[in-house]
Amino acid sequence: MQTPALRRRCIVAAGLAGAACVAVPALQAQEKPEKQRLTLAVGGKATFYYLPLTIAEQLGYFKAEGLDVVVEDHAAGAHAMQSVLGGAADIGAGPFEAMVVLRNRNQSYQAFVLQGRAPQIAMGISTRTLAQYQELANLRGRSIGVPASGSSAQMVAQLLLARAGLRPQEARFVGVGTGAEALATLRAGELDAMCNTEPVMTMLEQHGDVRIVADTRTLKGSQALFGGNMPAACLYASTAFIASHPRTCQALAHAIVHALKWLQTAGPGDIVRTVPENYLLGDRALYLASFQKVRDTISPDGLVPDDGGATALRTLASFDPDIDGARIDPARLSTNLFARRAKERFRL
């Protein structure tokens, strides 16, 4: 015969068992992504700009969310965008300001999880071909190396030229990529300036090849240049895709935010053990020095800041007369729905 105390313990145990039986089916019933095999287009994946994407891929976070993601790496973000627009890729990883460009073309696309909260781009003047540099106006008629035509780096360079009173066509932009070709082209004396991402700019700076004159590799420097928070790398898709594949977009956001959480505590050794060897460009120490420079610009939680859309729109409209800022709603450039849920899941 059970004592009252024993009877109470049995009732509690039965209640706990019942709760467990309720919870487990709920987990098992969690719906799978609508589209499990995806093609994701990116331009310049080896840069720190897309480090969270690389981490999510290398550590298996996409697979953990039930996704089979094929990453196509293009020469530049503009090429990756064309892959998305043409239907060859489902998702794009690219610069946030591309949402402004697309909306201006009446293309309805949105960013749905952020990787970087600053462009991580610096402008450096060649110490070899423009040793007498005094001001940005000295770049009139000169050659500026950028990753590719239409890249974020070219956007930064055009903004700087406009503030110096120069039109974009008064300088010559040369596409040199984001790796060894960029280093070699400037060091060969074929460029007068370089506007590029990391780790290229730190490698040029450390060897005395360039003199840095503008810098968005820190959050403070980016906010000073743009006058607000300037979102950078993001995952984006058409609003039609987002509406018809919400579970897929949520799974992607989970993977990226998981990578962002990992990056918050990762040490230098963790980084070099995780990224592919060719990302280091033959110099591990300088690669890690580059990482330390941009670390605070990596998004902590995947959320687009409240003023991000307005900052991007204002920036592009300031030097591109084709941008009709009056008919673009900054709030529609992104959605934080998926990143906010991922933030709650990973307790960021």
Results as ranks from 00 to 15, higher is better:
281 L>C: 13
254 H>T: 01
149 S>F: 04
35 K>I: 12
317 A>Y: 02
301 D>K: 02
325 G>C: 06
4 P>M: 14
142 R>D: 04
285 A>Q: 14
63 K>D: 12
13 A>H: 07
127 T>I: 02
61 Y>E: 06
276 P>G: 04
79 H>T: 02
51 L>P: 05
131 A>H: 06
258 H>T: 00
20 A>C: 11
288 L>D: 03
183 L>H: 02
110 Q>E: 12
203 M>L: 09
242 I>Y: 12
246 P>A: 11
321 P>N: 13
277 E>C: 00
318 S>F: 11
126 S>R: 04
152 S>H: 03
140 R>Y: 04
239 T>M: 10
297 T>N: 05
315 T>Q: 10
1 M>D: 12
279 Y>N: 13
14 A>G: 08
194 M>Q: 10
272 V>N: 09
42 V>D: 05
175 G>K: 05
84 V>W: 03
327 R>K: 14
168 P>Y: 06
130 L>G: 10
298 I>E: 04
291 F>W: 15
286 L>C: 12
149 S>I: 06
323 I>N: 07
103 R>Q: 11
21 C>V: 07
252 L>I: 00
245 H>E: 09
299 S>G: 07
330 P>L: 09
192 D>V: 02
16 L>W: 04
218 T>R: 05
271 I>A: 13
44 G>F: 02
110 Q>M: 07
290 S>T: 03
104 N>V: 04
345 R>G: 04
330 P>R: 06
229 N>M: 11
255 A>P: 08
123 M>V: 07
122 A>Q: 12
19 A>N: 08
257 V>Q: 04
190 E>N: 04
265 T>H: 09
77 G>D: 09
222 S>H: 12
77 G>R: 08
35 K>A: 09
227 G>L: 07
334 S>L: 00
9 R>W: 03
106 N>A: 07
46 A>P: 11
268 P>M: 09
232 A>G: 05
117 R>V: 13
19 A>I: 15
109 Y>S: 03
165 G>Y: 08
73 D>R: 05
269 G>I: 08
54 T>C: 13
175 G>N: 06
249 C>N: 01
97 E>Y: 10
250 Q>I: 07
142 R>C: 09
181 E>Q: 10
317 A>I: 01
97 E>W: 11
310 A>G: 12
167 R>P: 00
121 I>T: 14
5 A>R: 14
339 A>D: 10
171 A>S: 15
331 A>E: 03
191 L>D: 09
206 Q>E: 15
267 G>H: 13
